[in-house]
Design a protein around this nucleic acid. Structure first.
Length: 648
RNA sequence: GGGCCGGUAGCUCAGUGGUUAGAGCAGUCGACUCAUAAUCGAUUGGUCGCGGGUUCGAACCCUGCCCGGCCUACCA
């Protein structure tokens, strides 16, 4: 086995929201691979960073009345906490908004310039005069020019599937301010990717850098025609790095994001006194990117192109995975079907998710479905009942005696496990974790059958058979330890616990080839709890609440009965309406009115010291304790009057 | 419209030309009782999406269709 130097990255999560279970497919997949490589004795460094630039971050900072840097710093800390809680262990976790990244962007930019690949073109775009920003397609909404469906995004219609340019929309409005956008043109800088067409043809189709289906996809979709120029600049205002030789223009977020892989490596190198060029300019170093299929073209066309021109090492392999679906349905923020990492952690052990994902991940670009019943079932049936239980039923018998001094005759079981280990290792290497888990479970089944066959609980009753008991359990515990080693990339905490139990830390795959003997065992403690289905339900319930605001209103045909019961009031004039002073107010206090059936007494703050006391007829719908702090609309100039319960 | 991928037992999947298509889970029956009721044995269950073709032989290769997911670049 020759020594390998491997640099691994996961895609950079955007600093615009929390980590959710969809993100974790990728980070867990990558972390498993990294841990496996380390167990194999390879030098493997895993870096990542927050992706921090772009219009979305800028607008969010405006909305939250903060500045971008505070926003991205806070988000980065949250992301790091979430990853760490799921045992995703980076060697370095940086930010694209770093000096190292700015410097590397500059270096690559100069290379692109000097090779004559940058050209300038006028781009006419919709502009929001109120927010004073150019609007990306998704920030423009209007009526579809093809089917007249209202409220469609600027790039395509999700009603009829038509694609068009945002300027084609009928009655466009800015999704940011609601203002009517105007057409403006600005000068943008483009990378002429077509100049690298021959190189990209070769790189994508040869050398196993990509999964076969990805290579096919690129060939059929992009490489069969001239590659379009890639717009890599955005005019001010934009949160990002200003382009040194083009003042007022900024690098588009997708230009600096992948360079963030290098910047994170660089920061790690500086901290560890490593040579950066050893990692990005040495052909002996392998570079592996793990990404989701949505960002395929950035990583398989633009990114290799940039690296090539700037003289850096090209990726050895880009591992692309599918999306997470939950219960067979596409998971998306707008549908509100996502579970945040933090929410999961409030209810469940991260090892469950790591195991479940591993059991379902293959080398192909397929979506992974999280079936909640299957999740419970699978983790309990396999990890708990087969693997963990193997230790419970054998290690206890050894508490007094420890492991046998010589490894007993076991009918070739351990040796077979060692042989299968080679196959399991090959599966991990190829990211075929599902197959690896299946092989491990076969071994677990055989180990359990062995325990049943030799029935240590019977041996225990006869003091004459103490040696036999010790031998049988020594075999069982060694078979279990072999499984724990094979599962170590997936559930590292379990491996850690097994190392402690046996007074022999697990640190290398090779340990699975040599049985452990003569060791004393620590007192056995339960290694893991089974999944409690009620907690899975609780997690889903609390995710529903925290996402309530983003759940779209489903299409419902409401009954006409309420209108019949209570007809609309007579029309009022606009003058009447403007007399009503509507204000946003914060609920400072909310208390029960015990005597009232419908009322809750609210103390509302209008800002400063100005408050109002109102009685709201919402008792049947809301818990007073959950209203405090929320924002409500109040008629601020409604004359007070005496009510049975107090002043309104 | 075009492209990529998939459709195999109730569920999750394995199986890419060679005898009667497999595993785990679930179900059924039995055994065991060491283990957080876990485990072991046996067993039920499939016209391999549909049609056509190639072949001595097709789940597998070719072709048409049906169904599902995703992609379709200056969106992150």
């Amino acid at each position: 086995m020759s020594f390998r130097r491997i640099l691994v990255t996961s895609a950079l999560p955007y600093a615009n929201g929390p980590i959710h279970l969809g993100h974790l497919v990728e980070y867990i997949q990558t972390d498993i691979w990294v841990r496996f490589q380390r167990l194999m004795g390879h030098r493997c460094v895993y870096v990542c960073a927050d992706d921090t630039h772009g219009t979305a971050i800028m607008m969010r900072a405006r909305q939250e009345n903060t500045d971008e840097v505070s926003l991205i710093n806070a988000t980065q800390l949250q992301h790091m906490d979430d990853f760490s809680a799921f045992d995703v262990q980076f060697d370095h976790y940086g930010s694209t908004n770093s000096p190292a990244n700015r410097e590397l962007c500059g270096e690559i930019w100069r290379a692109l310039r000097s090779s004559g690949m940058i050209r300038e073109k006028e781009v006419t775009q919709l502009y929001d005069p109120q927010e004073k920003v150019f609007l990306a397609d998704r920030f423009v909404k209007g009526t579809c020019p093809s089917c007249r469906a209202p409220d469609q995004y600027g790039d395509n219609c999700d009603k009829c599937g038509a694609t068009y340019s945002p300027t084609d929309l009928i009655d466009p409005i800015s999704a940011l301010s609601g203002a009517r956008p105007e057409l403006r043109s600005a000068s943008h800088l483009f990378v002429e990717l077509e100049k690298l067409h021959a190189f990209l043809d070769q790189w994508t189709q040869e050398g196993d850098h990509l999964q076969a289906e990805v290579a096919n996809y690129l060939k059929g979709h992009f490489l069969g025609q001239p590659l379009r120029d890639w717009d890599v600049s955005r005019p001010s205002p934009y949160f990002g790095f200003e382009i040194p030789d083009s003042p007022g223009n900024y690098w588009y977020v997708w230009f600096d994001a992948p360079i963030g892989y290098m910047a994170a490596t660089k920061e790690w190198c500086e901290r560890e006194k490593e040579d950066f060029d050893q990692w990005w300019k040495n052909p002996d170093t392998e570079i592996h990117h793990f990404i989701g299929k949505d960002i395929t073209y950035f990583h398989t066309l633009f990114w290799p192109g940039m690296l090539k021109v700037a003289g850096f090492q090209l990726p050895t392999k880009i591992h692309i995975h599918g999306f997470l679906t939950v219960g067979g349905e596409k998971m998306s923020k707008s549908k509100g079907t996502f579970v945040r990492a933090a929410t999961y952690l409030e209810h469940l052990d991260p090892a469950y998710l790591r195991y479940y994902y591993a059991s379902k991940l293959g080398p192909r670009l397929e979506d992974l479905d999280l079936g909640l019943d299957e999740f419970v079932n699978r983790v309990n049936a396999e990890l708990q009942n087969k693997v963990i239980n193997l230790a419970s039923r054998s290690a206890r018998f050894l508490e007094a005696s420890g492991l046998s001094v010589r490894y007993p005759e076991d009918g070739g079981r351990f040796e077979k496990g060692a042989q299968v280990g080679l196959e399991i290792a090959a599966c991990y290497e190829q990211c075929d974790y599902g197959r690896a888990i299946r092989l491990i479970m076969e071994l677990a089944d055989e180990a359990n059958a062995f325990v049943d066959l030799r029935a240590p609980w019977k041996l225990k009753k006869d003091p004459q058979q103490a040696q036999e008991l010790q031998d049988v359990c020594t075999i069982a515990v060694n078979l279990f330890r072999q499984l724990a080693i094979y599962l170590a990339p997936v559930v590292p905490r379990l491996a850690q616990q097994v190392g402690e139990l046996l007074n022999d830390p697990i640190w290398s795959w090779e340990q699975a080839r040599q049985p452990l003997t003569g060791k004393a065992l620590r007192t056995f403690q339960h290694l893991m709890k089974p999944v409690d289905p009620t907690k899975v339900q609780a997690m889903i319930e609390s995710s529903k609440e925290s996402n309530a605001a983003s759940v779209p209103v489903p299409a419902i045909a409401d009954s006409g009965q309420p209108l019949i019961d209570e007809p609309l009031c007579e029309m009022i004039s606009i003058d009447d309406f403007t007399k009503v002073d509507l204000r946003v107010a914060r609920v400072l206090a909310a208390e029960e009115v015990p005597e009232a059936r419908k009322l809750i007494k609210l103390t509302l703050g209008l800002g400063g010291d100005v408050t109002r006391t109102v009685f709201a007829g919402i008792k049947q719908a809301y818990e007073p304790s959950r209203l405090t702090g929320r924002l409500v609309i109040v008629v601020a100039n409604l004359a007070p009057r005496q009510m049975k319960f107090g002043l309104r």
